[in-house]
Design a protein around this nucleic acid. Structure first.
Lengths: 147, 147
DNA sequence: TATTGTTATACTCTATAACTATA
DNA sequence: TATAGTTATAGAGTATAACAATA
């Protein structure tokens, strides 16, 4: 009867936790897609812009988006047509085209990230220990190779 | 100099934590899509099957997948053509069609979930406290309305 | 009248294969 | 030869609008 901690919720099984992760991931993308849609962008277009904090080769973008290289052509084409990104041939290897944000693209990314954060205000309410623990758990369950 | 805990990692800012969530969500779906692809299913088809632990109306599925109702028609059509789901008119309200898994569909879901879990073995290595804390954080940051 | 589900349409995303231009 | 990027193609997902059936 001597209970040290006071668990407000039951301890989830690994499978229950997997389901919770599924809900969280769905919630994250539902939210992200809604924010992107506010700016007339699709989910993939929003993800693409978010990856361009630095100029990146098409090939790298395909790897980061986990899709075939041929898809990147179309996605970048459409973003370029809207003036949000541009291609630049790599001087060192002329096969490579580096994709980078235009000024309007930079502004769009800023707005998207701000909007994303404003809907994740919970993150700001977490204590230092909670944030650190959270990051630790996330990086253990989903190691590096992503993004 | 008297430091109580021993943080192996720095305390992330809320924005850094948001980026970590983005990586985790991307990692989750990359993994999910790969598991679905092993069975010749797309991501959406895999998600659809996962939602059918109970029979559900088309309309409900559209809400859960956060897409227009017209899309559900096509997704269910393709799963039905492969014998994984079937439609059944609701006796109480004949406008409603309840979608449910066939036996083969049930088996497919079992296999997908098993494969998903086998690649998330990290979850089984977490302590009770860690799992509980993880669930707590996830449910705070991504409240109910999803799935 | 309102709701459920479907169809038609147009656009985006997707992988595959074949191509080019560079290396 | 190998790699980066594009094009062509076909299939799948997506929202919008209009529709039939049911409530």
């Amino acid at each position: 009867m001597t209970q040290s901690a006071t668990p407000r919720t039951a301890v989830p099984t690994p499978v229950q936790l997997m389901d919770q992760l599924a809900r969280a991931a769905a919630g994250y993308y539902r939210h992200f897609a809604a924010v992107a849609a506010e700016r007339g962008l699709t989910l993939m277009q929003g993800k693409m812009l978010s990856l361009l904090r630095e100029p990146r080769p098409m090939r790298t973008l395909a790897d980061l988006l986990a899709c075939d290289a041929s898809n990147v052509t179309g996605i970048v084409d459409r973003l370029q047509a809207r003036g949000l990104v541009r291609r630049e041939v790599d001087p060192a290897d002329r096969r490579i085209k580096n994709v980078m944000l235009t000024e309007e693209g930079e502004e769009t990314v800023r707005l998207i990230r701000a909007e994303l954060m404003s809907n994740l205000t919970t993150l700001e309410q977490l204590s230092d220990e909670e944030r650190q623990g959270f990051q630790n758990l996330l990086s253990r369950v989903f190691p590096e190779p992503t993004d």
